[in-house]
Design a protein around this nucleic acid. Structure first.
Lengths: 69, 69
DNA sequence: ACTTTATGACATATATAAATTGCATTATGT
DNA sequence: ACATAATGCAATTTATATATGTCATAAAGT
């Protein structure tokens, strides 16, 4: 299995959004966000991009493994 | 529909790989690579990451829309 | 001309992302 | 004690990513 996505959760909290609120902004369901945060899902690129745009982050910020310096 | 992924194709050519060769290194089929390059697919994050690692690029390099200045 | 390589296109099958619904639990507020 | 919000979990359904196989075509080499 994969790892928890702590960066995503932190970025969401920074924006003061619940999983449900983020999900609605992104256009997916709460379960999808929850499972991605738990690392139990392998999301599609379009969902990743939608999440990044909502949280003002890039793919590398939230989904790339090696942190940029 | 989406747009062609020219950056992916260029990165692949830089490494002197055919779609089939890249696919084998990444662990997917030729069709998957071809469709992603044509912009007719919405790949999963794991496939994106596998492609990036094979081509020594990051997600932002190949799959993020806004080019980093 | 013939072969080989590379790529696009198409159909079908399979795996899995995502939706939908519901329930359990924990924390917080009253 | 009761309500409500937030989250995890699980079952089922639906949509679609990916695999598999095949064919067409164009380019390069012989």
């Amino acid at each position: 299995m994969q790892m928890k996505n702590v960066r995503l959760k932190m970025a969401r909290i920074e924006h003061d959004l619940s999983q449900d609120e983020l999900a609605k902004k992104v256009g997916v369901t709460r379960q999808t966000i929850g499972l991605i945060e738990l690392g139990k899902y392998n999301p599609t690129l379009s969902v990743c991009i939608a999440i990044c745009k909502t949280l003002n982050k890039t793919l590398d910020d939230l989904f790339w493994e090696e942190q940029s310096e």
